[in-house]
Simulated assay, not measured.
Amino acid sequence: MRTLPSAVYRVFQSAARDALAGTPDLTRYHVLAGVSGGLDSMVLLTFLVWLRQQRPFPLSIAHLDHGLRPEAAHDADLVSAYAARFGLDVHLQKDNVAARAAAEKEGLEAAGRTARYAFFAELAAAFDLPVLVALAHHRHDQAETVLLNITRGSGLSGLTGMAPLDGNRWRPFLSISRNDLEMVADQLQIPFAEDKTNLSDAFLRNRLRHRLLPLWSELAERDMADKLCGLAKRLRDEDDALGQLAAELKNKVSIRPGEYAVMALQESPKALIRRVLELCYREHTGGRMLQAAHTDLLLLLIRQGGQSGTVSLPQGAKAVLSHGILRFVTDRPHE
């Protein structure tokens, strides 16, 4: 890659400094970049090629056609051609996201995300090295995620937004603005495709992006995307601390798998009890999240001082309180 213009170099240096601060040694991983062909992900591909010059690591590209747009075939060609400039392998796959959404009774955005992560996991299983999946989420994506979670009535964890490193999902651009990525694409003449669905206000995320955030920033006379990202970063520290305390308390009250002594929980702050209950349910259901309404019902059951009671939970699970012991059980279907 040729010498970078100074403005691009500053952006890449900033992204590298922030992204590598909490990231394992990249030379021990295969980095799999999710590249849609849009501006953000094409800049991500370029950034990773530049970063490899500083510290070599295996890199390949993953592109999923969601089966929603006729022009998606052009996107795949664009990604393949650009990756070929740098001698990178590209893994292409097509999914029927609309059918997936209908089958799972979820929105297109959620179904698309599920399809992408399933595709990444399938690819990751084939590599000899552990895999880091690089995603192009940036500072404005983070602000939109926080706002989305607020509209859903999220608790503390939702207000932390996306983590820079979440399992094997790596987001090196979370501290970088959309404007900076646009500048990089312009300065380096990076080709990219424009997804028309990003311009449609049919999706709540787009309405927040196009209408609420600009209006809020105008009224507040400050960059509210920046303020929301700062809030998410500070709350992540608090969320991590609460999570650590909850894990310690869960171990303390655990009698055996799925059974917990209630008395010690009753003496704890409500925020801590909620987090312990979420951990217990996640353990019982193999990682599923507990909705706030169900957490509140469990909290009421534990703090009301009674000796018995039952709360029905998603996935056929139940929480049964009896003689001071809370048990998580699952109804088995009748044969």
Rank of each mutant, 00 (worst) to 15 (best):
L231W: 06
A73I: 08
R209L: 00
N206W: 07
L235H: 05
S312L: 13
A73L: 04
R171N: 08
Q304L: 06
R209F: 03
A99Y: 04
A111I: 01
Y82C: 08
N168T: 11
A247L: 13
H74D: 14
T23G: 03
E144M: 13
A111P: 04
Q291A: 15
G305Q: 06
V131S: 01
F203D: 14
E104Y: 08
L135A: 03
R139P: 03
G155V: 10
P24I: 01
R303W: 05
F119C: 00
Q304N: 14
E283R: 09
G258R: 01
Q13K: 12
D180M: 04
H140V: 12
L188W: 05
E71M: 06
I61N: 03
F47K: 01
L290I: 04
N206E: 10
S157E: 15
G306A: 06
E109K: 10
E144K: 08
N206D: 03
A7K: 13
I190W: 00
A121C: 02
A246S: 08
E106P: 06
V329N: 11
F120R: 03
R222H: 09
T310K: 15
F57H: 05
D128E: 15
D75R: 00
T114H: 12
Q304W: 06
L64F: 02
R17W: 08
A293D: 14
R327A: 13
E283H: 08
L290T: 02
E194R: 11
H140K: 10
